[in-house]
Simulated assay, not measured.
Amino acid sequence: MRISSFILTALLFFTGLQTAFAGVMLSGTRLIYPESNREVSLTVRNPDKSTDYLIQSWLENNDKSSDAKVPFVITPPLFRLDRDTDNILRIANTGGNLPSDREALYWLNVRAIGATPKGQAVNRLQLVQRTRIKFIYRPASLNKNEAADAYKSLTFTQLGKDLVVKNPTPYYVSFASLKVGGKDVPEPGMVAPRSELRLSAPGSGTIEWQAINDYGGKTPAARQ
């Protein structure tokens, strides 16, 4: 009985923590930085009525093996977000070696650590929530309207059991869905500018796909 009571208490404890952490939200699922902008911003919202959070944010390279300094700065990088409030992250270009003919991809990380309520033990177990979204730099030479239609330019070729996706555009294209002969391709991911992506094909037939636009929504379906 003691063991059962402990397990039940632990489950209720973790459920409560997960519910609390679900309250910290970002205003977008991706962030586009046009070269012409001095800065871009993202809102971090805490609708939780009972928990304050420590928020830490940083940018990292898409290439995990790269030790190059990310040419953007976030302010504030660390702050307290009180219950039922929000704050704005501002991101500015610090002047780095950025491409002029294609988009560049980075990852924006936001970590939330729940505050320990008064009267509770200092060594109380805390869970950390980390949200990671795409941060895309778009050179001034690229057109926003063309970016919205870039997914239509993808081409697909079957090579053995592989499906080869080619992206001739200077834009990143993230799949919202991809089907071959009516069968879903699991986790199709993203294809980089002027690059190709190889996926395991579930069969053959008509290819249908949707992409994710600048605002995190789905595009109309395209077919090949």
Rank of each mutant, 00 (worst) to 15 (best):
R2Y: 11
S4R: 13
S5M: 10
S5G: 09
F6G: 12
L8C: 11
L12F: 12
F14N: 05
L17F: 02
F21T: 09
T29K: 11
R30M: 11
L31K: 07
Y33C: 07
E35Y: 06
R38F: 10
R38D: 14
L42M: 12
R45K: 13
P47V: 10
K49A: 15
S50Q: 12
S50R: 12
L59I: 08
E60F: 00
K64H: 00
A68K: 11
F72T: 00
I74Y: 04
L78F: 13
F79I: 06
R80L: 15
D82Y: 14
T85C: 06
D86R: 13
I88P: 01
R90F: 14
I91V: 10
I91M: 05
N93K: 13
N97H: 14
P99W: 00
S100Q: 10
Y106Q: 01
W107T: 06
R111T: 14
A112T: 03
I113P: 06
G114E: 10
P117Y: 04
G119L: 04
G119Y: 05
Q120H: 13
Q120I: 14
A121F: 09
V122M: 14
N123S: 15
R130F: 10
K134T: 08
I136D: 05
S141P: 06
S141R: 08
L142K: 03
L142D: 03
N143R: 04
N143F: 03
K144W: 09
A147L: 14
S153P: 05
T157I: 09
T157Q: 09
L159G: 08
G160E: 00
K161N: 13
K161R: 08
V164I: 15
K166V: 11
K166W: 04
K166S: 11
N167I: 03
N167L: 03
P168T: 01
Y172F: 13
S174I: 04
F175T: 02
A176W: 06
A176S: 08
L178N: 08
K179L: 14
D184G: 09
V185H: 05
V185N: 03
G189H: 01
M190T: 04
E196T: 11
E196H: 12
E196F: 12
L197F: 01
L199S: 04
L199I: 07
S200I: 12
S200M: 10
S204Y: 05
W209P: 01
Q210D: 00
Y215E: 15
T219A: 04
A222G: 09
